[in-house]
Amino acid sequence: MSAAGPVPAVVDAAGQGIVPTVAELVALRAEAQRTPQPRRGRHGVHGPAPSALRGRGMEYAESREYVAGDDVRRMDWRLTARSGRAHTKLFQAERERLTLLVADTAPALYFGTRVRFKSVQAARAGAVAVWTALQAGDRIAALRGGEPAIPPATGLRGAMRVLDALARWYARPPQDDAGLEVALEHAQRLLRPGAQLLVLADAASASRVPALRWTALARHHQATLVLLQDPLETSPPRGEFAFRAGLRRLQVALDRAAVRGRWHQAFVEPAQELSRTLPGLGWQVRCLSSDAASGDWLRPRDAGMAGSGQEATPLSADG
Results as ranks from 00 to 15, higher is better:
residue 293 A to Y: 05
residue 223 A to C: 03
residue 15 G to I: 08
residue 289 S to Y: 04
residue 209 V to Q: 07
residue 18 I to G: 06
residue 96 E to P: 00
residue 147 E to H: 12
residue 279 P to T: 07
residue 262 R to S: 10
residue 237 P to H: 10
residue 89 K to N: 01
residue 202 D to K: 09
residue 153 A to P: 09
residue 266 A to M: 06
residue 69 G to N: 11
residue 234 T to Y: 11
residue 206 A to F: 11
residue 58 M to C: 00
residue 160 M to R: 14
residue 83 S to M: 12
residue 208 R to G: 01
residue 215 T to F: 02
residue 4 A to L: 08
residue 197 L to Y: 03
residue 29 R to F: 01
residue 116 R to G: 06
residue 250 L to I: 14
residue 129 A to G: 13
residue 286 R to Q: 15
residue 261 G to M: 07
residue 150 I to M: 09
residue 2 S to P: 14
residue 287 C to P: 13
residue 12 D to C: 01
residue 35 T to C: 01
residue 215 T to G: 01
residue 250 L to W: 03
residue 277 T to S: 11
residue 280 G to R: 12
residue 199 V to L: 12
residue 280 G to D: 04
residue 75 M to F: 02
residue 221 H to G: 01
residue 225 L to H: 10
residue 133 A to I: 03
residue 303 A to T: 05
residue 265 Q to H: 07
residue 143 L to H: 12
residue 95 R to P: 02
residue 59 E to Q: 12
residue 279 P to D: 10
residue 48 P to H: 07
residue 126 G to L: 08
residue 46 H to N: 01
residue 148 P to D: 10
residue 62 E to C: 01
residue 250 L to G: 01
residue 75 M to W: 02
residue 137 G to P: 09
residue 226 V to D: 04
residue 116 R to E: 13
residue 24 E to K: 01
residue 201 A to W: 09
residue 92 Q to L: 07
residue 243 F to A: 15
residue 278 L to Q: 03
residue 153 A to K: 12
residue 105 T to K: 02
residue 165 A to S: 15
residue 63 S to Y: 06
residue 113 T to H: 14
residue 307 G to T: 10
residue 141 A to R: 06
residue 227 L to E: 10
residue 310 Q to R: 15
residue 196 Q to N: 11
residue 29 R to G: 12
residue 229 Q to N: 15
residue 18 I to D: 07
residue 187 A to L: 03
residue 196 Q to C: 05
residue 265 Q to D: 13
residue 214 W to I: 01
residue 26 V to R: 09
residue 221 H to K: 02
residue 301 R to K: 02
residue 162 V to P: 10
residue 221 H to M: 00
residue 184 L to K: 11
residue 77 W to Y: 03
residue 88 T to P: 00
residue 42 R to Q: 13
residue 84 G to L: 04
residue 82 R to W: 01
residue 41 G to T: 09
residue 66 Y to D: 02
residue 7 V to K: 04
residue 166 L to K: 02
residue 275 S to V: 02
residue 73 R to T: 10
residue 10 V to I: 15
residue 73 R to F: 09
residue 102 V to I: 09
residue 207 S to V: 13
residue 155 G to Q: 11
residue 218 A to F: 04
residue 118 K to P: 08
residue 317 A to H: 10
residue 242 A to G: 14
residue 233 E to A: 14
residue 135 Q to R: 15
residue 292 A to C: 11
residue 171 A to C: 06
residue 244 R to L: 14
residue 205 S to V: 07
residue 137 G to Y: 08
residue 158 G to P: 10
residue 150 I to T: 15
residue 171 A to Y: 04
residue 102 V to N: 06
residue 82 R to P: 05
residue 265 Q to L: 09
residue 29 R to N: 09
residue 84 G to R: 04
residue 69 G to E: 09
residue 219 R to D: 12
residue 138 D to Y: 08
residue 53 L to D: 05
residue 100 L to S: 00
